[in-house]
């Protein structure tokens, strides 16, 4: 095995082009578990920790945030929690403080687990993933085209994830996750919502309830058509939103929960998060931290 230590983004892309089998490693919170347990042994490790570009985020001219793939969750929460409240809530539920000090959204995207906590928030918030290769340059991939299957994403062998792009929240956002404890749990299932009051549109996505994280499209379209943005939430609308969110799921039975439980819980979380977000919107708040 080799250990490659590029110091710059250009060097990292060149190294990945030379040796596409090299496995990138950032926080190592997925990769090291596999190495420690000999689940797989890559030809080389490509350590991205020294690539400073990956650990920075910037506010771009078009108003969006461009967040380096290597910004750890702890910094995302501390530095961007006000502008990306949905993603920050998801980040707060990841592992433990030690895991959040190392783990990154780039690594969550690289691993592409259907249970990864950043994914529903990225989907609901219309994130775009910036990937790059030395040979073909940059590709901008909307989050809902990024996930292909269980632990599979659209990344090509010579590509690396550079950043993700998101607009600062224009309305209330929530993330909700079911698990046995408040820390250190892989989601049984999860749900994220983002209100876009300017566009009279709602983003909604499910996690750990299908082979990939996915948008609840029919539920989003229903709200875009039926929500009266100037009135209290109608119970019938809330109920139908929960049903359509549930229909977006295609869960399995596994050690963490049954498919039936997951379907039920997705409906509950959909109704709850929409209610929280709606209450915030009516009260003129854009953010409230879940207790």
């Amino acid at each position: 095995m080799e250990f490659l230590r590029p110091a710059t983004w250009a060097e990292a892309l060149a190294a990945k082009a030379d040796l596409p089998e090299a496995a990138p490693i950032q926080g190592g919170t997925d990769m090291m578990v596999e190495l420690n347990f000999d689940v797989h042994r890559p030809a080389a490790l490509l350590d991205l920790n020294r690539v400073a570009e990956l650990t920075r985020w910037t506010a771009e001219a078009d108003g969006r945030l461009r967040i380096g793939a290597g910004v750890p969750y702890a910094r995302l929460i501390a530095e961007l929690g006000d502008r990306l409240p949905g993603l920050a809530q998801a980040a707060r539920t990841v592992g433990s403080p030690q895991i959040r000090n190392r783990g990154t959204v780039g690594g969550n995207l690289g691993a592409a687990s259907p249970a990864g906590d950043s994914h529903p928030a990225l989907l609901a918030g219309d994130a775009v993933i910036e990937v790059e290769s030395a040979a073909r340059g940059v590709r901008m991939i909307p989050a809902d085209e990024f996930y292909l299957g269980v632990k599979r994403n659209t990344l090509l062998p010579d590509e690396l994830i550079r950043a993700f792009w998101m607009s600062p929240a224009s309305g209330p956002q929530y993330f909700s996750k079911v698990g046995t404890r408040n820390a250190m749990v892989i989601a049984v299932c999860s749900f994220a919502i983002a209100l876009h009051p300017g566009e009279r549109r709602v983003g909604a996505a499910i996690g750990s309830a299908a082979p990939t994280p996915r948008r609840a499209r029919a539920a989003e379209e229903f709200l875009a058509a039926e929500l009266d943005w100037d009135a209290p939430l109608e119970p019938a609308v809330l109920r139908r939103f929960g049903e359509l969110a549930t229909e977006a799921a295609s869960p399995i039975d596994d050690v963490r929960g049954t498919a039936g439980y997951r379907r039920h819980a997705i409906g509950v979380m959909a109704r709850r998060t929409l209610t929280w977000a709606w209450n915030d919107l009516r009260a003129g708040r854009t953010e409230r931290r879940a207790g």
């Binding site: 250990f3 190592g28 578990v33 350590d47 030690q98 895991i99």
Partner: peptide
Amino acid sequence: CEQGECGSCTVLLDGVPVCSCLVAAGQAE
């Protein structure tokens, strides 16, 4: 545990608490 679950390997890396079982040795260079 060697999988980040127990915290008994916690060290400070550049002043930040991390599970040392999840840091590749070469990353500490």
